[in-house]
Design a protein around this nucleic acid. Structure first.
Lengths: 126, 126
DNA sequence: AGCTTGCATCGAGAAACGTCTATACAGTCC
DNA sequence: GGACTGTATAGACGTTTCTCGATGCAAGCT
């Protein structure tokens, strides 16, 4: 008799499908899907890029603002942006001469949910 | 009594000290410190390992249970465990013949906090 | 002591990654 | 149209990563 919980996916709404890394073993498929996203975050340059993009809560930031923020060549920054985009963490749009990037919060929300464990396990119990 | 105490530094509290990737630009030092942790998560094998370890809420799991769960050689699994440990995500202890690993929730909590944004951005705005 | 088992470390080879320069493409302005 | 600016792609090269087999070390057993 397993204690069924009605709808414990409280704040972890995004996690409905993927009960969090921390509570149940991840199957191979989920791991294969998730790993590239974490890998995209596994580089200091990309972390800073994402951070620069995301903290623009207004929404978007122009590449022309991002590139000079790093001691790297323009193609290198462009490459990192591409990886972040392929990971589903950001998206972009060309608008005239410039290209603007913005965060895709669905993905960061999902990661956060996956890394969040039922805070107080005692809370859901009883 | 389902009401939480105010000092629930579960996910919100932790986010206060480390302003989260998503609200303020990360400086180089923070990025350099954080990236290796995400990098450690950026591999499907390590994600599954961490998941296997973490879902043992009781606490620990023996390496002898982890190794056969993968289609990999024993040294390879050992290598991945080492990386997870170096990232601060898990810790281990030898007990007689066997070695046991367990999760370090401080680290996953920290990552979750960093990826969690102030839910309602309008809320923090005055 | 010597054997056996569980796990870590070593060294090597193939693949992936981060960075660069050179170049191509998309728009704008004259 | 032609020149110029902003961004992406291509190709190259050194470094890191993932995996393996071989080996080493620690602990228990006979």
């Amino acid at each position: 008799m397993s204690k069924q919980k009605p709808e414990v996916l409280g704040r972890a709404g995004a996690a409905e499908c993927c009960p969090t890394l921390l509570t149940a073993p991840l199957d191979e498929e989920q791991a294969a899907e998730l790993a590239p996203v974490f890998k995209a975050l596994g580089d200091p340059v990309r972390l800073r890029l994402l951070s620069l993009i995301a903290s623009r809560q207004g929404g978007e930031i122009c590449v022309c603002e991002l590139t000079p923020a790093f001691d790297l060549s323009q193609p290198t920054v462009s490459h990192h942006l591409k990886l972040l985009r392929q990971a589903g963490l950001i998206d972009c749009e060309r608008r005239g001469t410039w290209v603007y990037y913005w965060l895709r919060p669905e993905m960061t929300d999902r990661l956060a949910a996956i890394l969040t464990r039922p805070a107080t396990a005692a809370d859901t119990a009883s």
